[in-house]
Design a protein around this nucleic acid. Structure first.
Lengths: 240, 240
DNA sequence: GTCTATAGAATGATAGAC
DNA sequence: GTCTATCATTCTATAGAC
């Protein structure tokens, strides 16, 4: 398997459409985001890129480094695209709608927490930091746009950083809907409209509800005991 | 290692505080949610539960089955707790606030998509379905409360299912903030208030903004090329 | 002729299954 | 506690660019 049909040695310059290093990082980003760090083997990345494992190591040195580079690369692309849309004119609300539709149409989910699940013990501190910084750059461009819109009076005085994270979380809801087959391509536009409306106006029936809340009185909360038997069917449960 | 200090043979009934099967599933749920499926070994689950690997296989048969049972168990507990709060009286907004604070204080993140990352090829169809059903039960109890509040006039006529998913997504934002050290325990209450306010009232500065939007005109969008070199430092990048 | 980009095979460790 | 498959990583060889 791996790279069948390829000749040995360095290829002629006019024979390479996309350089190997690029093909590898694109493939890696897609696979890691789809399946997570552990589920993706270097062999898979290699064969899906049309090269051998040795090439992956030649260019990226280790699996952890490939992972870090791929995630960082993807986030930077996504941030650049988002920034471009934000810098175009018009109402913020419309620009956010465009971002939402764009991200749901083409972009992969970029939930750092989910991405890093299971890698925390494997990645070095420096690699973790690089990914977190890439994420912060992404959130910041949105937060900056929110802060500016608040100054311009288009937004309430909400915490821009919080609003940016909430906005991104909404997009992840859409990604999940797509993955589970509840949101076909042709309804993306409508879905974004509905969610942006929720984000922009909230759920309240009272238009004058915009007032800071005191702390709600907490009802009594107790954990309910689970009555279900979750053990493996063929095996008996020990009685006491 | 594994279960040091334990004697061989079946323990006397008065010597077991929590039955082994329970300890195993609790430990497994915590570890799987924290670290993901692949990163957790059956050996780890066993030793953290104070039993041997053989016990894990005795009660749960396989790693995939243990995983399914653990996630399902955790979701059912979380759903039961949520349901209890929702059934208590008062304004929906206050009950949601209570749920938010409770989930951020004690519960693990329950993002099915993140949980299942990397397991899709390992789990059977039936196991996947069981987890998805457990999640739907969870979303449904919230959606039902939203539908009822809409009938009672406390909510706008938003899609209850969508609103429920958005609400849960906001809680995941909080979980992420906690994990990255940006949300210490003492600020949880205040954070929930702020986010619930966002959820309830939206971000708009215009209180009369609650009107369906037409589709926004899309500004031109082009991908920006990433100028950064993401390859492994020791290796040179081929120039064209 | 030397260096670069590539393939193929070997090694060593881990972890699930039973 | 043992068996075995998988996977990250390394080593070596080679064809062609420069």
């Amino acid at each position: 398997m791996s790279a069948e049909g390829r000749r040995l040695g360095r290829p002629r310059a006019n024979e390479v459409d996309v350089p190997a290093a690029d093909r590898i990082i694109r493939t890696a980003a897609r696979l890691f985001l789809e399946q997570g760090y552990d589920a993706v083997t270097t062999e898979t990345v290699a064969s899906c890129s049309g090269v051998t494992k040795a090439m992956v190591y030649y260019y990226y040195g280790s699996k952890t480094n490939l992972f870090t580079a791929a995630i960082e690369w993807m986030m930077d692309i996504s941030r650049a695209r988002t920034q471009e849309i934000l810098m175009s004119g018009g109402r913020l609300r419309d620009r956010l709608h465009t971002i939402a539709v764009t991200r749901l149409r083409i972009a992969a989910p970029l939930d750092v927490d989910a991405i890093l699940r299971g890698t925390r013990s494997t990645l070095t501190e420096e690699q973790l930091a690089r990914i977190h910084q890439a994420e912060e750059r992404m959130v910041s461009v949105i937060a900056d746009a929110f802060a500016e819109a608040a100054r311009a009076g288009e937004l309430r005085a909400v915490d821009p950083l919080l609003a940016a994270r909430v906005f991104l979380a909404l997009l992840m809801v859409g990604k999940m809907e797509q993955k589970q087959g509840r949101l076909p391509e042709e309804r993306v536009e409508a879905w974004c409209t509905e969610v942006m409306d929720l984000f922009w106006c909230g759920v309240s029936a009272d238009p004058a509800a915009i007032a800071p809340q005191g702390v709600a009185p907490a009802p009594s909360v107790r954990a309910a005991a689970p009555p279900v038997d979750h053990t493996h069917p063929p095996h008996p449960k020990g009685e006491e």
